[in-house]
């Protein structure tokens, strides 16, 4: 801080907060390069004319590759994805086959071939943990996709066109905000129509219904920030229709904060599914998921806590990696925060 203390620095700085300045200048550099003959550059030969400017994403990727937080979380997510898609690679026991469970093993500890012991029903804890990955991850991924589509479209339209559309969508968002996610999900999931047809998809629909306003708000804010940017005006002046300018220029440039929040939300959706399953309102018993396993292990938690702790550990590590990924992305996509 001390190097900034010189008086001329103090005077030259306008009253505008530094945050704004940083954003405006980076935007101009990225997207608008004036033709040389119109630019009174003195030291033209010092500028490498052939070098293409790094896009926000290329710049972020350059930064991300060096961040340990990103590398760890990306590797963990990759591992979880592989486990979710190919669970049979990681265990020779197929826990979906009831005959692999034997009540003789009920609540038994670890032994060779069964590293994490057995559940009350005598099923292998490790195999169930491996096979439970898919349902939990599916809920997280598809809910995030749904929320991004619904919230993204709503937020982008509201922010770009403004006016009555914005007013209506903002009020609609407020209404959904008034219902905390878990409370809202509880109401929907205990409806007869949902209670009797529980599946991964009903859980996803429920979470999307209560998750979209957050993404809509973020998208709206980012779109408003960009809709009057020079590069949008320029593209319109070149004859692009208003809607095409939104799709081709405004939305791609507004994605950074949305992606960050989506990554973190993915983790919270997995937790929400587990919480609903824990309350007995989430995935049906027939679906193997961490939330269901934790819920099943709950009555025996004082005698046999391991059965509860292993799926809980898997769940926490997965959620943690998505939150860490979001954190790393936030740092990488916000050059202003990086400089400090």
């Amino acid at each position: 801080m001390s190097e900034n203390l010189t008086p001329e620095n103090d005077l030259s700085k306008s009253a505008k907060p530094a945050a704004r300045q940083g954003k405006v200048s980076s935007r101009v550099i990225e997207h608008f390069v004036a033709p040389l003959e119109e630019t009174p550059l003195v030291a033209v030969d010092k500028v490498d004319m052939t070098a293409a400017p790094l896009s926000l994403w290329a710049d972020a990727w350059k930064n991300l590759r060096k961040q340990p937080l990103f590398i760890i979380s990306a590797l963990l997510i990759l591992a979880v994805l592989v486990v979710a898609i190919f669970p049979q690679w990681f265990t020779h026991i197929d826990p979906t086959d009831q005959s692999t469970c034997s009540l003789n093993d009920s609540g038994e500890g670890a032994r060779s071939g069964h590293p994490l012991g057995f559940t009350l029903q005598g099923c292998d804890v490790y195999a169930r943990m491996i096979y439970g990955t898919r349902a939990s991850l599916m809920v997280g991924v598809f809910t995030t996709i749904g929320v991004l589509l619904l919230g993204g479209i709503m937020g982008a339209l509201a922010g770009y066109y403004g006016g009555w559309l914005d007013a209506i969508l903002a009020r609609l968002g407020d209404i959904f905000f008034a219902l905390p996610m878990i409370l809202g999900a509880i109401i929907i999931m205990q409806l007869p129509a949902f209670r009797d047809n529980r599946s991964v998809w009903t859980v996803i629909v429920t979470l999307v219904v209560f998750g979209w306003p957050q993404i809509a708000r973020i998208t709206r804010g980012a779109v408003i920030e960009n809709r009057n940017a020079d590069f949008v005006t320029a593209s319109k002046a070149l004859g692009l229709s208003s809607f095409k300018a939104l799709v081709k220029h405004v939305i791609p440039n507004s994605m950074a904060p949305v992606i960050v929040v989506a990554s973190i939300s993915l983790g919270t959706f997995i937790v929400a599914e587990a919480t609903l399953s824990f309350l007995g309102l989430g995935l049906p018993q027939s679906v193997m998921s961490w939330g269901n396993d934790i819920s099943d292990a709950q009555p025996q938690v004082r005698n046999n806590p391991a059965v509860l702790l292993w799926p809980a550990l898997a769940l926490s590590i997965t959620v943690l990696s998505f939150i860490m990924l979001g954190d790393a992305l936030r740092d990488a996509l916000d050059p202003k925060a990086r400089k400090r």
């Binding site: 937790v271 919480t275 934790i294 709950q298 938690v301 809980a312 769940l315 926490s316 959620v319």
Partner: peptide, 9 residues
């Protein structure tokens, strides 16, 4: 990252 109910138990 740890869900509340796990923390609670």
């Amino acid at each position: 990252a740890v869900p509340t109910f796990v923390l609670g138990f």
